[in-house]
Amino acid sequence: MSVLAPERAPAQEQTSTEPATRTRKKDFAGAVLAVPFAILLVCTVLVPVAYTLYLSLFTERLRGLGFSGPEHVFVWLGNYLEVIADSAFHASLGNVALFALIHIPSMLIGALILALLLDSAVVRLKQVWSLAVFVPYAVPVVIGGLIWAYLYSPTIGPIKNLLGFDPLSDTTVLPSIANIATWQWVGYNMIIFYTALQAVPKEIVEAARADGAGGFRTAWSIKIPVIRPTIFVAAVFTVIGSLQVFTEPMVLKGFTGTVTSTWSPSMYVYEAAFVAGDNGRAAAASVLIAVICAVLSAVVMRFSTRRSSR
């Protein structure tokens, strides 16, 4: 997912509520420009979402001897109840919860520390450092997953010998998956934070220095509060991304039996839809994931506005 953090957007929204007041007559030209995207949005997002909601309320059942083919039966919330009661779904939620607990703090804190270090006056060769840490973002997720899978693999990779334990065992595979995601995203978020830090007014930083605040103090009391909205936007996108984690465990599944076919909720949906062929259950599970995503991002954003409105 591409994530940028245009944190000044709300301010711009106010100035643009009455845009271009002059050209009301030729409104249709604006509509013409917007139509291609509007069609795409309807056909590839809104209709599929509506279709998922519809599917989630039905199930396929064989009637009689099954000669007449499966029958579409309306089951109210039956699919949802089935998913909610399914221990495989619980396990997948547990996995992503743990994954998020490891990945989100390590990635965001790491990115923030690196951004603050780059922003401090003493660092030389800023470009080189930031490019080096950013490079993994340019690696496709599947390929990043494959590289790490081989590095983890006991026969080919060096990590087992280096660290003295098997990174693909029952207990270590989860942090190993989180590590792949952190490797991929830490540089990207570092750049986002670093870019946001450039907007911190230099006078304030210098005034703090003159008052005797050290680098750590300046970072904590001035720089971090200023870029807090950016941090929260990044947190929201990371939460959503973590819940939907799919590619990394899918890749590792080919290397170790410790990743099950329903390891994450997205894999659960994939398994239900394309292996078990149970569309109703798959649709219900994906609606549940979407709802959890929406609730969690609302919680993070609420937390963010409450803290910054003080």
Partner: peptide, 30 residues
């Protein structure tokens, strides 16, 4: 941003909603 065709606010609101829809939800219906 710069023109005022009817439905522009609705389109923008739907666009913002679209940002948050997980790919997982879209794959099966697609």
């Amino acid at each position: 941003a710069k023109t005022s065709f009817p439905g522009r606010r609705l389109l923008f609101a739907l666009t913002l909603t679209g940002v948050l829809v997980p790919t997982t939800v879209l794959a099966l219906p697609m």
